[in-house]
Design a protein around this nucleic acid. Structure first.
Length: 426
DNA sequence: TCTGGGGTCCTAGGACCC
DNA sequence: TCTGGGGTCCTAGGACCC
């Protein structure tokens, strides 16, 4: 059996843990740059605030209903996620962290246990230890566990746990589930399926395998099998990413190369750091830059460039170098730029590493520098040591006017977010 | 004025090989 | 009327997830 455990209204719940006066009040959390609503407490949902709605469209609703609004605070959410995952890990022999607020559990070897009782214990303990409410769905496949999880969330008397372990329960659950709510069925397929009079997950399972294969490809076929109780999607045990992206919308529109270079240098530095954290190297780097696609009255520009690195690397100085070179190649005058980003890909493990006989770079030396830089930043706070190209102006910086304190982590992290002071140049 | 960020997998078509 | 058969690799685009 698979379990899917999922935190309820995760970001909103995180804001509440250290600020209990928010309990019972409508709370929303905004995307970077204070753009859209990306998390809502149940009270906020009840007010009809939709997911993904730009916050400026909700101004009136927020004021009249005294909705508490927060900028997203990923330092806090990341730390809370870690606490939740650590708690859950002790309950099952195998776990896959699926997202910041979700994990699959492999519940094999529990045949003699009452899974319902055990599940309730997992839910109770996690909520008690972390302050974050969670729900658990249990079923023979991952897709059905997702379905079960929705019911666990929806009905109070389940006490946070729903199990689909018989064909009767499966049929009943699928008949109550919109096909568009199935894991793996998005907007496009949902529309298509409605056209063929398939409205519920159950309707979908009643079509023939070959029809599903033909209309939705091999991915759809897997979903179909999983809904019928045949596991096709295994636990994913891979630990390292195949591509890593750092990108941001700028707090204000940028027209000059200078500040955009600074931003791109920071994005490249962040990619390098993420690579080192997972002990890998990237062989390809891409830089992209674009104007605001919503501003249809302004001239649009959208470009990217991809560079093959001669030797895979996770060296900040080297990646910044390429990133800036790439940016210069695609930068154009006369536009108001809104967003840029760096993506590294074709990622390989740090060792064994393929070297080049004619490589002129002293890789051993730079890798030592990176090690020292990482450990200094680990002890004294983010970006205490950085590359000069990353700059100090931060004209590109995010808007986050409603940031909560980083309650659960070092004071330094708070300072890092609020005031950028005392930085050492390498 | 104001609209996020970070991922994965699959497929079709083109270019090329023998 | 009727122009082979079997591959690989790469890319762009489309679908999905949180």
């Amino acid at each position: 059996m698979f379990g899917l455990i999922d935190c309820n209204n995760f970001y909103a719940s995180c804001e509440r843990v250290f600020n209990p006066s928010l309990n019972g009040k409508p709370v929303v959390v905004l995307s970077n740059n204070d753009g859209c609503v990306i998390a809502r407490s149940s009270e906020a949902k009840a007010l009809g605030i939709p997911m993904g709605e730009p916050v400026y469209k909700l101004k009136e609703l927020i004021e009249t209903n005294e909705v508490y609004v927060f900028s997203s605070n990923y330092v806090l959410y990341g730390d809370m996620s870690h606490r939740v995952m650590t708690t859950i890990a002790s309950f099952a022999p195998d776990m896959e962290i699926y997202s910041i607020d979700e994990a699959f559990l492999l519940l094999d070897g529990f045949e003699n246990k009452n899974l319902k009782i055990y599940g309730q214990e997992i839910v109770r303990t996690t909520t008690r230890n972390t302050g974050i409410p969670v729900s658990l769905g249990i079923a023979p496949t991952k897709t059905l566990a997702k379905v079960a999880n929705k019911f666990a969330k929806k009905y109070k008397n389940y006490k946070g746990v729903c199990i689909i372990d018989t064909d009767e329960k499966r049929e009943k659950a699928l008949k109550l589930t919109d096909v568009g709510d199935v894991w793996g069925v998005g907007r496009q397929y949902s529309k298509k399926l409605q056209y063929y009079s398939i409205h519920t997950a159950w309707d979908f399972t009643q079509r023939s395998k070959s029809w599903v294969r033909h209309t939705m490809g091999v991915v759809g076929e897997r979903t179909w099998m999983e809904l019928r109780g045949i596991p096709c999607i295994e636990m994913d045990r891979s630990t390292s990413k195949k591509s890593i992206c750092t990108s941001r919308s700028f707090g204000e529109r940028l027209t000059e190369l200078g500040p955009i270079s600074e931003a791109v240098a920071n994005f490249a530095a962040s990619c390098a750091e993420k690579l080192r954290k997972q002990h890998s190297l990237a062989s390809v780097i891409m830089v992209f830059l674009h104007t605001n696609p919503h501003a249809t009255n302004l001239p649009q520009y959208n470009n990217q460039t991809v560079m093959q690195l001669p030797i895979p690397t996770n060296d900040t100085t080297e990646l910044i170098n390429y990133a800036i070179r790439g940016l210069k190649a695609i930068f154009a005058e006369g536009y108001r730029f809104k967003k840029a980003g760096v993506i590294v890909s074709e990622i390989v493990p740090e060792r064994p590493m393929q070297t080049d006989l004619f490589d002129v770079r002293n890789r051993a030396k730079f890798s030592k520098i990176m090690l020292v830089m990482d450990s200094l930043n680990e002890s004294y706070g983010k970006q205490k040591v950085k590359i000069a190209a990353q700059g100090f102006d931060r004209k590109w910086k995010l808007k986050n006017e409603k940031l909560s304190p980083c309650y659960s982590t070092k004071l330094d992290d708070v300072l890092e977010v609020k005031v950028e002071e005392k930085t050492t140049v390498v």
